[in-house]
Nucleic acid binder design. Sequence first.
DNA 1: ACAAGTACCTACCAAAAAGTAAGTACAAAT
DNA 2: ATTTGTACTTACTTTTTGGTAGGTACTTGT
Lengths: 116, 116
Amino acid sequence: MKKVKESSTNQLNKRSIELQCPVTFTLSIIGGRWKPLLLWHLQDGKKRYSELKKVLPQISEKMLIQQLRELESDGLVNRMAKEVVPPYVEYSLSAKGKDMHQLLKAMAQWGIKYRE
Amino acid sequence: MKKVKESSTNQLNKRSIELQCPVTFTLSIIGGRWKPLLLWHLQDGKKRYSELKKVLPQISEKMLIQQLRELESDGLVNRMAKEVVPPYVEYSLSAKGKDMHQLLKAMAQWGIKYRE
DNA sequence: ACAAGTACCTACCAAAAAGTAAGTACAAAT
DNA sequence: ATTTGTACTTACTTTTTGGTAGGTACTTGT
């Protein structure tokens, strides 16, 4: 995982605000360039790594793996390695991740309404 | 406003994804450390700059002003300068910003539920 | 041998977000 | 004069996020 300076004001503020504000906590888990897209694409069922790569042609492999690992670490996504030939890895939403469905929809709706 | 390199892959990807994904578009407007908190605090009515500074003791003036300016620029917040003595500035949610209430609540609920 | 498929890892760099410090302007009070 | 209140601006630095390039390992097919 990426190196984080735990003693920085930046990090201390982040931790503190996440405790105070549940909105910020939620955003710290689903925010960033690629996580919302990944969560959105996993809403309609499990997907293989190669499938995710296809639906997101602009993401680098490095970012794809990193974001999936973080989502897994935060408990939103389950990772299942299949020992077949060729071997592949399957990602699916956990219960926690599925519980985010309404939220993602609300975000999409607001975005669609106010996008210009 | 802050200098952004419009020709960077980073920026090109950002723009492209924001067009494709309404969730990412929404998050680009309300994301970051301080905007969710500002939006949250403005839910219950207009606030002066000095009031916002008080309820968010950890925010630097630079970040406070910058984030408010961005929220204003994106149309979520109205800024009203009062020419009294002492003069003060009042920030309030626009209709667009008020329309975000349910969304913020959903985010808060998810965060409260899964915070540990 | 190479190419294609599977799914990564590592080192380094670029860009963006956030933070620090110093300053501005005005008015009123001491 | 300084201090306190109002609300900023600017220059620079630090930290974090995202990108680039090279590599790993295995199997199968040509």
